[in-house]
């Protein structure tokens, strides 16, 4: 797939639903990405075993964090457009905690907090440092690996799919967690402090509770949208909007276009909404090309993100 095809596809991938609400799908050539099954399981890495120390406060409680992750995925499967009945039968199933830290194409979908930079966690001289494969082995953020790039990246999702149909086979989420000790201040180069706290004050120190910094539910809800085949949305109200200020929690709840997207793509009792295959050359989202550009242009005049009613408890 050439980048040119990708670009052409994304330009055509904004779909104006029947309601006129726009959402954007991730595409590969002419094919939109989608899960072929309605029951997609995911595992949550047990970071209490694998090392991330500062997720949601100083007390390690993987089960509590797992619940927050589940709430994030559930936001999509429980989507109910305003004034309508339940409209999707997509199920994103929490399969529990795992000690696995493996990403990539292995038919195991995981959410994993990397526990710190590989340069700190992998033993010096380990061949994985040279081959940039330490991440899965030591559950670390490999700042020298091309799939991690550097420590400024907060989260990554890797999706494996059929080049012909766009059907997703595997998806994994990696979050770049902090491993610095308490009281050292918030990290700037060794991962990020993920919080599960309420909305409100922004945390000022690592391990602080009752505050928000890089909100787990905000981040994972956004990432879960990608996990099921949605791309960034230029509407500032969308969970898929590509900006997340520190302390942001507005993406915990879906906007109307996000709900419409999951309802259209994974409708109850019907096949997933596909866009064609790369062998057939069928077009994708042909009604939406002007939609995405128009929205982006409008966005230029926005300047600021409007608060979304009901997004913060």
């Amino acid at each position: 797939m050439s980048p040119g095809l990708w670009r052409a596809a994304i330009a055509a991938a904004a779909v104006l639903a029947v309601s006129g609400v726009a959402y954007v799908r991730t595409t590969a050539g002419n094919a939109c990405l989608y899960w072929g099954t309605r029951q997609v399981s995911y595992l949550v890495n047990d970071f209490s075993v694998n090392g991330a120390q500062e997720v949601c406060g100083p007390t390690i409680d993987a089960a509590a964090v797992q619940a927050v992750v589940q709430a994030s995925f559930d936001a999509w499967t429980a989507a109910v457009p305003d004034g309508q009945a339940s409209c999707t039968d997509l199920q994103l199933l929490n399969a529990g905690l795992t000690t696995s830290t493996h990403t990539g194409y292995d038919h195991q979908n995981i959410v994993v907090w990397r526990a710190g930079p590989c340069t700190s966690l992998a033993p010096a001289g380990d061949p994985c440092l040279a081959s940039h494969t330490c991440g899965d082995t030591y559950n670390c953020w490999d700042t020298s690996a091309p799939n991690h790039g550097d420590s400024k990246i907060i989260a990554l999702t890797t999706v494996t799919y059929s080049t012909r149909t766009g059907q997703i086979f595997d998806a994994d989420m990696e979050l770049n967690a902090a491993n610095a000790p308490l009281g050292t201040g918030l990290p700037t180069s060794a991962g990020f402090y993920f919080t599960c706290g309420p909305t409100g004050n922004v945390c000022t120190t690592l391990g602080q509770t009752a505050c928000v910094y890089m909100d787990v539910q905000n981040t994972v809800t956004h990432e879960a949208g990608h996990f099921i085949g949605f791309a960034h949305n230029p509407d500032p109200l969308s969970t898929m909007y590509p900006t997340a200020p520190i302390g942001d929690t507005s993406k915990r709840l879906l906007a109307v276009e996000d709900k419409q997207g999951v309802c259209d793509v994974y409708p109850i009792g019907k096949p997933p909404l596909t866009c064609g295959t790369n062998s057939s050359g069928c077009g994708c989202g042909t009604t939406g090309a002007e939609g995405v550009l128009g929205l982006a242009a409008v966005l230029l005049a926005f300047g600021r993100r409007r608060p979304r009613a009901g997004t913060t408890p």
Partner: peptide
Amino acid sequence: MLLAAGPAAAAVA
């Protein structure tokens, strides 16, 4: 975002 031509994805920076 307007100028970006690549497919949307899922990294946060």
